[in-house]
Design a protein around this nucleic acid. Structure first.
Length: 354
DNA sequence: AAGGCGGGGCA
DNA sequence: TGCCCAGCCTT
């Protein structure tokens, strides 16, 4: 049985050789920018690196400091977050920036409890900042770490978070450089000890891994119990005025796509709203069905029907918006599909440096 | 403890 | 099609 110290040094040394060059890993005089790291950690919550890469530099260019983020209008933040999903993260991140500016002098706090007190920051994210940015010997556990540690110790069954935290804590405390060990453990899970087809031949822990010894790495951990997706019927009405503007409304702050903008849309759980009721809700001169499509998320199957209407008036919280204006706001990818169905393509706000 | 919350890529 | 991803918050 290898010592914890041996395990941690193997991982840290491996990371030193194989770390990917990711934008949030840039350093100035050997230090990472804590604010930049915080943004990256929030973006990376339940979101793959490849997806974050598409948005990260643009977001940092636009909001380069906690103060800049705190001072920005909320719709600009949601606009920069468009397409990333889990939009509450964007609001929470800005709220965190405001706390940082008001309570911590504009500096990301170093204290674990201060970090956890920030909105949108839980034990994982706080631990990541503490250890990776500030070098403190605190553990972090994400989906990668759960998997790597379960395989290393040959723990069968569904993901056991309590055990993973205990094990990660013991390792982080004994690591020579907790920053390199923690980030290396995640990197290992992301690039070598992957859910499927792990590349055990390239793993620095292969001679210490119980799953590898027993050839059970593919079965560990066992899949999480699945929850069934709810079906939602959405009827979206696209209306365009004489100047080419689009009629839009803002969704409620909470729930699915909270706070994002959309063309007038009615949602029903059981069946799609009928055309007659649709006309009652959206009075117009004429309306016609354009197309339909399915939009799947992890938790929902949304069946969209797209209508195009003529002779609609604004009001009831709905307003005419230019396409350029709309592209600056938060718009879900589902609504981009709706607009695409009538030939409207929003400017991407993914571009960086503009 | 469980459920809600996006979106895309991959087997 | 099902599963997973640098999780967090609410109930």
């Amino acid at each position: 049985m290898a010592s914890n110290r041996k395990i941690t040094s193997l991982v840290a040394d491996w990371f030193g050789l194989h770390a990917r060059a990711l934008p949030w890993r840039r350093t100035v005089r050997g230090r990472r920018d804590p604010y930049v790291s915080l943004v990256s950690e929030i973006m990376l919550q339940q979101t793959q690196v490849s997806r974050v890469l598409e948005r990260f530099d643009g977001f940092i260019d636009r909001f380069p400091t906690a103060q800049a983020l705190a001072d920005a209008p909320e719709e600009a933040v949601l606009g920069a977050w468009s397409g990333l999903g889990y939009y509450r993260r964007a609001r929470s991140l800005q709220a965190a920036a405001r706390v940082i500016c008001e309570d911590h002098g504009g500096r990301v706090p170093r204290d674990l409890d201060d970090l956890i007190a920030l909105p949108g920051v839980g034990r994982y994210t706080a631990g990541a900042i503490c250890s990776i940015v500030f070098g403190q010997p605190v553990p972090i556990v994400d989906g990668n770490v759960v998997r790597v540690l379960a395989r290393l110790d040959g723990i069968d069954g569904p993901p056991d978070h309590a055990r993973s935290w205990a094990r990660a804590d013991e390792l982080a405390q004994q690591a020579k450089t907790p920053a390199l060990f923690n980030e290396g453990l995640m990197e290992l899970g992301a690039t070598v000890c992957t859910p499927r087809n792990p590349r055990c031949g390239d793993c620095p822990l292969k001679t210490h891994c119980k799953a590898h010894a027993a050839c059970t790495q593919e079965q560990i951990p066992s899949p999480k119990p699945k929850s069934k997706r709810q079906v939602l019927h959405a009827s979206s009405m696209v209306a365009i005025d004489g100047r080419g503007r689009v009629l839009v409304e803002q969704r409620p702050a909470d729930g699915l796509w909270g706070g994002l903008w959309q063309v007038p849309t009615v949602e029903r759980a059981s069946k799609a709203v009928g055309l007659r009721e649709l006309r009652d809700l959206f009075p117009c001169r004429s309306i016609g069905r354009v197309s339909a499509f399915r939009f799947d998320t992890t938790h929902r199957e949304v069946r969209f029907v797209v209508y195009k209407a003529i002779g609609v008036r604004a009001g009831g919280g709905r307003q005419w918006m230019t396409r350029r204006g709309l592209s600056q706001l938060g718009v879900s990818n589902a609504q981009r599909r709706v607009l695409d169905a009538v030939g409207i393509e929003l400017d991407s706000c993914v571009r960086s440096g503009t």
